[in-house]
Amino acid sequence: MPKVLLLIIAFIFLLLLPFLPSILEIIFKRDKDPIPIDQHRTKEPDYFGKSFIKLLTKAFEDLNIQNISKLQLAYIQLKLKREEWVGVLNSEDLLETNVHTSIIFTQDAVFNHSHTFRRELVVFGNAVFLSECVLRSLYVKGDCFVEAPLSVVRWVHVEGNLIIKSKADLGVSVYALEVKIRDRTTFKRAYAKKIDTSDKPLLDKNPTQEGRTININGSFSVKGSITIGDKEGPVVIDGDLFSDGDVQIEGNVWIKGNVFSQSSITLKNGVVIGIEGKVKSAVARGKIFIKGPVRIYGYLHSEKLVEVIP
C-alpha cells in the first residue's frame, strides 16, 4: 500500500511540476507589463537632430547658459542622454585627429584637417568640410558645404542648405532645407524641401520640351516591376505609383505623387518626383539608385541604401 501511495503522490507531483514556472510567474508577475508603446510617437524626418538639439538646449538651460555663441572655450559637463563632457569652441581650429567628446562650434567652422568625431559634432554657424572627416552625427545651424570626403555614421541635420561637392556617406538620416548633391553620395533616408543632383531645369520647371507629353491622371498600383520613360516625349503622372517589383523611371518623367516599391527604385536622367512646395516620397524596401539630373521634393527612404551619382 505505501508503494501505491507513493505512486499516486509521484503521479500528481509530475503532473503539476511542469506548471511550476508558470504558477511562479502568475504569482510573482515578473514580466507582467504590456509591451511598451510610445503614445507620443509620430513620424518626424528631423527626429534625430531635433531631439539631440532639444537635449542640448535643455542641458545648457539647466546650467543657466542662454547665449551659446558667447561661450568661451571650455569643457562643460552636460546632462545629455547621460552625463558627458562636451567641448566648446569658437572659431578656433581643432588639433586632434580623433575627438572623443561631443564638440560644439559656437560660430562658423571650417575643417581644414582630417578628423574623426566619435561623438556628435554641432556647429551653430555654417560648416565647411575641406578635409576628409568621419563623424558620428552632425548638426549645423546654418548651411553645410561638403568639399572633401565625408563619412557620417548616424545622422545629419542641417537647418540651412546642404551642398555636397565631394564623395559622401551621410549615414542613416539626412535632414536639410535643401540638399544639392554634386558628387557620389549615399544615405538611407533624406528629407528636404528639394533634393537635386543638378541645377539643370527639369520637367517641372521646363514643361515646354520637345515631343508630345503623355499625361496620366490618377494613382496606380502594379503587382510586378514597372519601367516608365518614353523616348518620344515627356511623361507626366499626376498621382502615386505603388509597385511590388522594381521601379525604373528614366528620362523626362515627372511623377507628381509618391513612388513606393517593395523592391528597388531607379531614377535616372531627368526624373522629377513631387511638386515644389509639397512633401512627397520615394520609398523602397530595396535600394534607391539615382543617376544623372534628378529632383525630389520631399523624402527619400530606402531600407537598404540610397545611392546618388549625379
Binding site: 572655450l73 588639433l95 580623433n98 567628446t101 574623426t116
Partner: peptide, 26 residues
C-alpha cells in the same frame, strides 16, 4: 590651434562605430 579631445581618453580606435539602430519590434 586648440586641443579639444577629452583629456583622459587615449583610445587609438580611429573608426567611429558601426551604426547601431535599435531594431524596432515591428
Amino acid at each position: 590651434m586648440k586641443s579639444m579631445a577629452y583629456p583622459q581618453d587615449y583610445s587609438k580606435i580611429s573608426k567611429v562605430e558601426k551604426p547601431v539602430i535599435g531594431y524596432a519590434r515591428f
